[in-house]
Amino acid sequence: MEASSLMISKAARLGYINDRKPSRNSISLTHLQFADYTLCFIEDDEKSIANLKRVFRWFKVCSGMKINFAKGSIAGIKIEHSLVEHYARRIGCGVEVLPITYLGLPLGDRIGKIRLRNKALLAKWLWRYGEEKRALWHRVVREKYGKELGEWKAGVPVRGRGSAAWRSIASICGCFDQYIRFCVGKGDEVRFWLDLWIGDTPLCQKFPNLFRLVVKANVMVSEYLIRDGHHGRGVWDIRLRRNLKENEIESHRVVKDVGIPLLSAG
């Protein structure tokens, strides 16, 4: 599917397809892809319709994959229904009337919301990556791009390299992390400063001045925790680049008093 995505994008750049803009000042939107589904957005002109079908035919020839246009459908946004039917005959597909359901999500005539929905679908794949650690696709992605945070998050592809699909998924990691609250578990997959695992905000945001002094920003919870063998309790070993100033001691004391999690053994 990545090849078809690149072909559609190139056809739009070369002017063979007039893509759709959600609003006057927004960037162009040609298509969205999720698994085996492709959703295209083009202006209502004969040339674009014909060339879009040519792109899919070329993809069929190059890839050897079958494309059944009869399983597809077309819907118009603020254009005559008779014109939509005409385009459907040109493509050889069905006709639908908005609102429709796409991948279980309602889709109306407000294109701007589609980007938000697409981001939600990409976030779903990030969640699945963290959950499906034994799945074959998880292992393939991990081997290809490396890993961050143990098995929870894969490395981000270098720009211009790797799968365009995974680059799109990885591009929303920052946004995705804002809505995730971690269970500490063994503590080796949760970052002490950067992840939300205690309180309402990550500790790096709650104590920014102290965070700037730490030796390692990406440190895991388990790396800071030292167990007291005599009493079974633990203390935080927070390593800083320099000695604290008087106005920084209080923040350090508060962080040191952060509740010690009960780390799981396996």
Score class of each variant (00 low, 15 high):
residue 86 H to Q: 14
residue 86 H to Y: 15
residue 76 G to W: 11
residue 60 K to M: 14
residue 82 S to F: 12
residue 46 E to N: 13
residue 57 R to D: 13
residue 39 L to F: 15
residue 95 V to F: 05
residue 36 D to R: 09
residue 33 Q to M: 14
residue 63 S to Y: 01
residue 80 E to F: 08
residue 40 C to I: 15
residue 74 I to Y: 02
residue 60 K to F: 06
residue 57 R to Y: 07
residue 40 C to S: 14
residue 88 A to K: 03
residue 71 K to Y: 04
residue 29 L to N: 06
residue 68 N to D: 12
residue 71 K to I: 02
residue 60 K to A: 14
residue 77 I to A: 05
residue 56 F to C: 03
residue 82 S to M: 12
residue 69 F to G: 00
residue 35 A to Y: 08
residue 67 I to H: 01
residue 59 F to L: 04
residue 88 A to I: 06
residue 33 Q to A: 14
residue 44 D to G: 13
residue 45 D to K: 04
residue 36 D to E: 12
residue 67 I to Q: 00
residue 27 I to V: 11
residue 91 I to Y: 00
residue 57 R to N: 13
residue 79 I to L: 07
residue 71 K to T: 02
residue 52 L to G: 04
residue 101 T to C: 10
residue 90 R to L: 15
residue 76 G to T: 08
residue 60 K to V: 09
residue 32 L to G: 03
residue 72 G to L: 02
residue 74 I to L: 07
residue 98 L to V: 07
residue 60 K to P: 03
residue 48 S to R: 01
residue 64 G to Q: 03
residue 61 V to N: 11
residue 50 A to G: 08
residue 100 I to E: 06
residue 72 G to V: 02
residue 47 K to S: 14
residue 89 R to W: 04
residue 66 K to V: 10
residue 78 K to F: 10
residue 63 S to V: 03
residue 61 V to P: 02
residue 45 D to E: 10
residue 88 A to E: 06
residue 34 F to L: 05
residue 55 V to Q: 01
residue 49 I to D: 01
residue 74 I to C: 00
residue 40 C to Q: 11
residue 50 A to I: 14
residue 78 K to V: 09
residue 81 H to L: 09
residue 42 I to E: 03
residue 94 G to H: 06
residue 95 V to P: 00
residue 66 K to H: 08
residue 96 E to H: 12
residue 78 K to S: 13
residue 75 A to M: 15
residue 28 S to A: 13
residue 94 G to Y: 08
residue 74 I to R: 00
residue 71 K to M: 02
residue 99 P to C: 05
residue 59 F to Y: 15
